[in-house]
Design a protein around this nucleic acid. Structure first.
Length: 904
RNA sequence: GGGCGGUUAGCUCAGUUGGCUAGAGCACCUGGUUUACACCCAGGGGGUCGAAGGUUCGAGUCCUUUACCGCCCA
């Protein structure tokens, strides 16, 4: 029974394996108390920890480390909920499981937070200095850095907290340095003076991925430049006129007939009066603007490349904080947008503006502070990506790494195949400092894994370390192996790497997922995970992304407070279709809360009837299963199969629906109602048998539900006394196999029909406004003898569910006079009532039903008389239609007869 | 400009390889205080599946075109 590693077994036996009597369940489920209690208990018992020394089948997930500055939002809730489900299922399946948690130092974001705090004290980071500033950041982390991990605990995340890591901790920092040095030694890291995305507010370079393009309603400025030595003026179009101060050429397409003669001429720039050439370059699109473009090699990536081709000078016109510099002449000291305004006014005054058009274009914004990015020339460190990308492309192409949903592999491929070098240096202080050293005596530059004592070339101590730090993602991309101690080798690393599934949102496929595949293959020579599950984005109920500025975010902690963590988890899973964005509003979490209450009450019901019942003995006689027992167990089997199948395909919503339907409808609506007469008035033997079936089904379904609602299920596992065999439901056996012994498909089908018959009877009651207290007499005319026997044997049960005083079963039943009636799959149901039958209403109802049946029948007949259909459609499809035709004919004839009888 | 996703009941969404009489939750309407549950029970109304073509015996489900919404990349 216990298929567990020994060390965990020992932890279990630390408990007294005493048999607890069924605890008395409170009238109302107190989620808050229960959830706190169980999380603390699980932690105290070390339930979340996995260790390689226990051996077995490894199952590892690494968390996408949230920013230390972060607070839990719905996206995190969704993301971690999914991971927790996967991990909890694996754990119940007996796998050796670890879910490694941790946080990300989030360089720019965290630095911004601390800078803001300093600002309140009236200080800047320069005032305190680098060393003190970094101390401040660590202090900040000490104080607030656990916020988000504590919040994850409220969610019920079964993270292996003993393994918690931080991307700036010692081990991971060593991994970062090692990685840098290896790539540097392989010439895959280089320093280059190139156009990068510069954030003037954060005052640092950013990678291409960190520059978010936003469509902006801007303008296309048409400027007149004078051709030297001629009266002619040419017109160039630009979206950033202020960069003209740094223009070093004007370009035309060589095939553009209009400007053929101009190539080689010189232009005199307005304001600065610099002279620059007109060059020909294929890059220029003759259709754009006037077909003449200004070239500013220091402020635009395309211009930069053209500049290289034509050997043009590069003039940077701005300072680090986006202020015009000495190259901007009269505009020196002006903010870049201020300059744009003033410059345009000046040009207008000089008659140098042809026109200004409205123009929509994409403008890069800093992903941390939303400031407009300034593309600019700057010396930075880069990783050469093409060599790393090749194996990562293969890994997805040959299926070693699979995306779910599959379409995301296209996104991944598109990026990989057009990959550009990664700018990894950042001009901030909080992060891993670049391990490059420069000798001031001999100018030697080298990478070092540990703090050097002297220059390896000239042996002097006169050297300094590069001032920059690395992009935060340079530590994140090592996460799947660095968390296990790499570059040290460890048993855990060998055992748990590669991890199983990476669960994340689509927005970090480039930032993180793609880069992890590259680093994993480069360093470990193996993929870091075999499946990437991409979930949707959480939005508000109007489809807007949740954000603080919109004020539309729903705080998961509020939801937990209001509805419980289980409710949050279950609801979220039930409304989230695989890979689809999810729209939420407060009310949606009622689903989970109501479901939890429903289960709680079902448990209370069982408890009330279980006095003297021993839950250790659930070995009921499978040869003695009644129709309803068989039906319930068949439904349970279906739920088990559906849950397993859905989980395998990451269709969490399907899994929750299967479990929900089983509990609510099969178990509560039908079986409990069926069981009531037995439990209230049955013999001790009948009672025992029924309770055995109930507890068997309930405890199985509870286990299926556990990954989705961990707290409630644990509470009931104990409350119902199921912990006699396995102390915690977390380690109870995961239901995988359906047991069909003693279940007859024909009997199950009969019970489906019985439910239909009861439904028909209830409709009759409703139509004649019978109150619950009024009993009625029903006459059933079964469609065949088998049904007649089955119904006859099952009469008391049907009577109870129909609140019938009497049920007469008779294949030859014919009503004397008018009687309300309806047709079920088992046969026709008649209700005898005292007083007048509303004959007209009855005829109307039956006629409407007849119309419908005849309509369907015509459709079916049409199909079957179509030779193309009967000859081309698969046999079984035709057979279904033929059977349907029979049934519809039978039904329509019955209806006609019933109407005739009423017409008298 | 390229790519992807969405468009199905009043609302929010399911609908896997084309074969249903198109489903669920919420909302709505009608009944209901039997000892599990009103966070409940029983019943009911309500969509022809964005639009137009096409393939097919058969399309919400495949193809083409198109409209609108959203996202990603240029």
């Amino acid at each position: 029974m216990l298929r567990l590693p020994i060390s965990r077994l020992l932890r279990i036996t630390n408990y007294e394996l005493r048999i607890k009597p069924m605890a008395e369940l409170a009238k109302k489920y107190e989620a808050k108390h229960v959830e706190e209690k169980w999380y603390a208990q699980w932690m105290a018992d070390g339930r979340f920890h996995g260790d390689s020394s226990d051996g077995g089948d490894p199952f590892c997930i690494v968390i996408p480390p949230p920013n230390v500055t972060g607070i839990l939002h719905m996206g995190h809730a969704l993301n971690n909920n999914i991971q927790d489900i996967l991990v909890r299922v694996a754990r119940m399946q007996g796998k050796n499981t670890t879910w490694v948690p941790g946080t990300d130092h989030a360089g720019i974001a965290t630095q911004n937070v601390v800078e803001r705090a300093l600002k309140k004290e009236g200080k800047s980071r320069d005032d305190v200095g680098r060393e003190k500033f970094i101390e401040r950041v660590w202090d900040w982390r000490e104080e607030y850095g656990n916020t988000i991990t504590n919040q994850l605990k409220k969610l019920g995340a079964s993270c292996d907290w003993e393994r918690e890591r931080f991307t700036m901790d010692e081990g991971l920092s060593a991994a970062v340095v090692e990685m840098f040095c290896r790539l540097y030694d392989k010439d895959l890291i280089y320093r280059g003076n190139r156009i990068i995305n510069w954030c003037p507010r954060c005052q640092t370079a950013l990678s291409d991925e960190e520059s978010e393009h936003v469509d902006v309603e801007g303008a296309l400025y048409h400027l007149r430049y004078a051709v030297k030595g001629k009266r002619q003026k040419i017109v160039v179009a630009t979206t950033r006129p202020e960069t003209m101060l740094g223009d070093t050429a004007v370009a035309v397409n060589p095939r553009d007939e209009r400007y053929k003669d101009l190539i080689g001429e010189m232009i005199v720039l307005p304001i600065t009066n610099r002279e620059i050439p007109i060059v020909a370059d294929d890059y220029v699109d003759p259709e754009f603007g006037t077909g003449l473009v200004k070239i500013t090699p220091a402020h635009d990536p395309n211009d930069f490349e053209m500049g290289q081709r034509h050997d043009l000078p590069q003039i940077n016109v701005m300072t680090d904080d986006g202020i015009m510099n000495e190259n901007a002449g009269p505009y020196e000291g002006m903010d870049r947008f201020e300059c744009r305004k003033q410059l345009m006014e000046d040009l207008k005054a000089g008659g140098l503006v042809e026109k200004v058009e409205k123009h929509q274009h994409a403008v890069g914004h800093c992903y941390r502070c939303e400031t407009v990015i300034e593309p600019r020339l700057s010396p930075q460190w880069f990783v050469k990506m093409k060599p790393l990308a090749r194996p990562a492309i293969d890994a997805v192409n040959d299926g070693r790494v699979k995306f779910v949903p599959e379409r995301w592999s296209k996104t991944y491929m598109g990026w990989m195949e057009n990959i550009r070098d990664w700018c990894i240096s950042r001009q901030i202080w909080w992060g891993h400092r670049i391990p490059i050293f420069y000798c001031d005596d001999c100018n030697h530059e080298w990478a070092a894994r540990t703090e050097p004592e002297k220059c390896p070339v000239c042996s002097t101590g006169n050297f300094r370390q590069d001032e920059d730090v690395l992009d935060t993602w340079f530590s994140s991309w090592l996460w799947p192996f660095s968390v296990f101690g790499w570059p040290e080798t460890s048993e855990d690393l060998k055992f748990y790497y590669p991890s199983k599934t990476l669960v994340t949102g689509n927005e970090i496929i480039f930032f993180w997922v793609a880069r992890m595949v590259m680093s994993g293959l480069e360093i470990m020579d193996e993929i870091p995970f075999d499946t990437v599950y991409i979930h949707g984005t959480v939005r508000d109920d109007q489809g807007r992304k949740m954000s603080k500025s919109l004020g539309n975010s729903i705080d998961p902690l509020d939801i937990i407070e209001k509805y419980s963590s289980d409710a949050l988890r279950f609801s979220l899973m039930m409304i989230t279709a695989t890979g689809q964005d999810v729209y939420i509003s407060d009310e949606k979490f009622e689903i989970g809360r109501n479901f939890a209450t429903k289960i709680w009450n079902a448990a209370r019901f069982m408890e009330m009837h279980s006095e003297g019942f021993d839950v250790r003995d659930l070995a009921f006689d499978r040869s003695a299963l009644g129709p309803d027992d068989q039906h319930l167990l068949a439904k349970l089997n279906e739920a088990v199969a559906a849950t397993n199948d859905s989980l395998e395909r990451y269709r969490f919503n399907d899994a929750t629906v299967a479990i929900y339907d089983f509990f609510w409808h099969s178990y509560c609506d039908w079986y409990i109602e069926y069981a009531k007469p037995i439990l209230f008035k049955g013999s001790p033997e009948q009672k025992k048998h029924t309770l055995q079936v109930m507890h068997h089904a309930f405890s199985t379904a509870l286990r299926l539900l556990h990954p989705f609602m961990p707290f409630l299920t644990e509470e009931l596992w104990h409350g119902m006394g199921y912990n006699h065999s396995v102390e915690t439901i977390m380690l109870a056996e995961w239901p995988e196999k359906a047991v069909s012994d003693g279940i007859d498909a024909g009997v199950v089908k009969y019970v489906d029909g019985k439910h239909d018959l009861i439904r028909v009877g209830r409709i009759l009651r409703t139509e004649y406004n019978l109150t619950n207290k009024q009993t009625a007499v029903f006459n059933v005319r079964p469609s065949n003898e088998t049904y007649a026997e089955q119904i006859e044997a099952d009469k008391t049960s049907i009577m109870a569910l129909l609140k019938a005083a009497e049920i007469n079963v008779d294949v030859g039943f014919a009503p004397e006079g008018a009687m309300p009636s309806g047709i079920s799959t088992l046969g026709t149901v008649y209700m005898s009532i005292e007083g007048l039958v509303d004959v007209d209403a009855e005829i109307k109802k039956l006629s409407a039903e007849l119309d419908e049946v005849v309509g369907h029948l015509e459709n079916v007949k049409k199909k079957l008389s179509n030779e193309n259909f009967t000859s081309r459609a698969p046999k079984d499809v035709v057979a279904v239609q033929e059977k349907r035709q029979e049934e519809l004919i039978e039904k329509s004839e019955k209806l006609k007869k019933m109407i005739d009888t009423l017409n008298g």
